[in-house]
Design a protein around this nucleic acid. Structure first.
Lengths: 225, 225
DNA sequence: TGCCAATGTGGCACTAGGTGAAAATTGTGG
DNA sequence: CCACAATTTTCACCTAGTGCCACATTGGCA
């Protein structure tokens, strides 16, 4: 089965699972129900997902995917707010009704995660992945290794800030905030949150030329071992 | 059953479970084995823990408990490194062999969490709780509400930094670092990491008198909704 | 001391999540 | 239409976890 095809099937299952989880809770939803809803046998569900809760992962992962993609394509010479703003504009024109529905489900799963530990896991794991990818991005921007302690600290703090903002915005949307209110000034707020969380090290444009000169400056020489 | 007694039983089960998890993996350990190791019936284990993996929670929670307790008792007029240093000294004189063994098990569970998703959950959940308690601490230090967006951002970033440092130090200890090398200069490093993650807002002494004047300054006026 | 009530524990049957392996179905090139 | 591989289904089976009732232990009280 092609990787793409597999991804689509998983996503399809995930949609139905998320819908059922939201409608009747995780405990109140059985594997059989998910299978019936998506029109596959139960066994096939377990072939695609190791557990019931993990059925929600693709829809959650997809809701952070654009953020991840945006961070991956962040050119060194641009500021974070600039890049977010242009990418958001591009995304807005590309996203279809399916994408909007998925985003809605993603937000609902985020909300469910507040009360369903099994889903909170999935959400935290998704954020965990953001953290790792962000470490790579930060490492290249600062000219350090991706497992440098300072890089890991910055990545963890920044992705934690992004998580909080995601939860905040998501909660707002579920409570009836008009999505059109999400304007450019919010990207400035997000970028500043990242700047604050990283002590100003991440968020501004970096000059390619000066990066090598700074390399090593941020490493954890002071930690005794 | 008294709350204290219940806590002790859970901890006892957790010790055996952690030992078995470390020795033979989570999947390789059955509920029956844990029950036998601790001398209780399997049924009683499930009365105390909702799942196999959650048996590791108390030992993990305990390993962040001293950190939590230290943060809770952080007086406004002291810097973070000062407070950590004195509390660590006090702790070192109080901790017994049992406490040391538990700390060792806690570090091992942290390490296992790298490969065992079920345990990573427990670890992230423990960190999640640190984040919440830290929010309360930060709120009082800054004179803001504990659910203020700025407070949540600082708490998330700071606790993420603490998590990374925990993982880093834990990994070091498991790889043979001498525990005695954990001196005062490390507390300065930790405190600086927290300072960086919070844009300098958390870590230094705060003057009680000036707190009310600053209240409201950090709120998220700029986010559009 | 002896009784009683509350509460923790054990045993056992049972549900549900999840897997292994072979049969059945679907898809695909000749 | 056939041969063949890839996927799905069917079915037996395993283990984590629950409901229920009987039993044991504890602690209060006369």
């Amino acid at each position: 089965m092609s990787e793409q095809r597999r991804h689509r099937v998983r996503l399809e299952i995930s949609r139905e699972a998320a819908r059922l989880f939201w409608a009747q809770g995780v405990d109140g939803t059985s594997g059989d129900q998910i299978a019936e809803a998506v029109g596959l046998s139960t066994r096939t569900i377990w072939r695609h997902f190791r557990s019931k809760e993990s059925c929600a992962e693709p829809i959650i992962a997809q809701s952070v995917e654009w953020e991840l993609a945006t961070l991956r394509s962040w050119p060194p010479h641009r500021s974070l707010e600039e890049h977010f703003a242009t990418e958001a504009k591009r995304l807005a024109s590309e996203i279809g009704t399916q994408g909007q529905a998925d985003a809605g489900l993603g937000v609902k799963m985020m909300r469910l995660a507040d009360t369903e530990p099994a889903l909170r896991t999935a959400w935290l794991m998704a954020c965990d992945q953001v953290e790792h990818e962000l470490a790579a991005v930060i490492a290249t921007r600062l000219g350090l290794e991706h497992d440098d302690l300072q890089v890991r600290l910055h990545a963890a703090a920044a992705s934690a800030a992004l998580r909080i903002l995601n939860e905040y915005v998501g909660a707002g949307l579920l409570d009836g905030t008009d999505p059109r209110k999400l304007g450019d000034e919010n990207f400035a707020f997000i970028a500043d949150a990242v700047r604050t969380a990283t002590g100003g090290a991440v968020g501004d444009p970096v000059d390619i030329a000066e990066v090598p000169a700074e390399s090593g400056e941020g490493t954890a020489d002071r930690l005794a071992f």
